[in-house]
Design a protein around this nucleic acid. Sequence first.
RNA 1: GCCGUAUUAGCUUAGUUGGUGGAGCGGCGGACUGUUAAUCCGCAGGUCGCAGGUUCGAGUCCUGCAUACGGCGCCA
Length: 443
Amino acid sequence: MAKIIWISDIQSGLYTDKNIELKGWIKRHRSSGKIVFMTIRDSTGEIQCVAKKAEILESEFGEIKNALIESSIILNGLVKSDERAPGGHELSITSVKIIGPVHPKNPFPITESAMEHSEGGETEFLLDNRHLYLRTKKMTTMLKIRSTVFGSIHSYFRNLDFIEYQAPSFVAGAVEGGSTLFEVPYFGKKAYLTQSWQLYAEAAMPALEKLYTIAPSFRAEKSRTRRHLTEFWHAEMEIAWGGNNEVMNHGESLVRHIAKTILDERTEELNILGRDLELISTYADSKYPRMRYDEAVETLQKLNVEIEWGQDLDYSKEKILTQDFDVPHFLTHYPKIAKPFYHRPDPDDEKYVLCHDLLAPEGYGEIIGGGERTWSEKEILERIDEEGTPREPYEFYIDIRRFGGVPHGGFGMGVERVCSWLSGAEHIREVIPFPRDSRRVTP
RNA sequence: GCCGUAUUAGCUUAGUUGGUGGAGCGGCGGACUGUUAAUCCGCAGGUCGCAGGUUCGAGUCCUGCAUACGGCGCCA
């Protein structure tokens, strides 16, 4: 039953003038009495198949004629080169077997009309029928790019001898403010779903020195924007003996590597999405400028944006700031009061912390957040107390600093945000198979 | 949590100053031997989101509720 012939190979001419067996699904179907045209799709492409009444069994002709869209099918026939067929090749059918029929009383619901308004955000219907919507060109194209993005993250870190390292998803404490944690019952106790791998990575930092992961993170934010999910894939790294600049260098190289890889390996998919390849190429080749928080505030004030020193830069400010950017920009050295305790204060000026955000252009916003960690016992206790955070849940974290603490740092990258930006998606939902947000956990 | 918009057939939608709800897609039947989202003819398919109210009469006006979508705050 194994499948050995793929449509992309047929279209590239590998089987021309040969008899083959084709396995796939009916994408489109047209009949005109004595001839039936079908577009068959598989995971690699599409091909037109032709059945002529005079050339096959009458019963099989009837089966083809009545078959509905998305029925799975095995066809035998002769591959011909034909200019009239999209892609340049077609299959002249000699026999047919419907494997998984679709019933007329329950036809495939993702029709042309259902897709009509999917451009500016999916309709409720498409979100409810996500399990079937996945089969469409738009989704498969996005998912192929997504796969390549994941692969390129692994290859970036592994080429540099980083160790892939896993942290638990059930945790007791928070990385960020507690309000965004998902609480789950845990045998009579309370546990939370992790927001970040970071604290556990810091524990392994003195052992493995260069670590990375790609794992789901959870945020119970009731955000309703095109940039937020409650469950997203988080690519994170942590290095020993490195500070803010080294970490930023990795962030920049990683993003450029991802852009380069999809440019090389997903050219066709980027074209299908109508993405400007020159743009992606710029992202792959340029240096990403670095701007201090103070500069950003000055720039905004010159543009008459109301902002006071010490305020975090929210999306409305990021958006104005990134309007004129043609490549991602780093923002560094935020005020200490705007960031959590684990960010290390700048020894040159304790008002600031050694941190960075990487902002993507085209209005996609923050894709990376990272920096140098507070790494001595004295400093971490000061910062925790200053913030009024209880020490108890972080005892293990403080302990790391009691036994050979070293300068270290890392970042977290929102993988869907990167996919969304590079593929030019209208909504972050488009780049994940089953999106989770504050109002939807199904299907 | 806040603000905005929407809800009419399986899907996408039209519906005028309030007067018996139309179309396209999809499905079914028929015609057609080269179609490209095929075309043409016909058929079926609707508690107009729910509950009240105004009115002789409500898809349309008013109130409440529900759900969804979009945006803000927060963040990756």
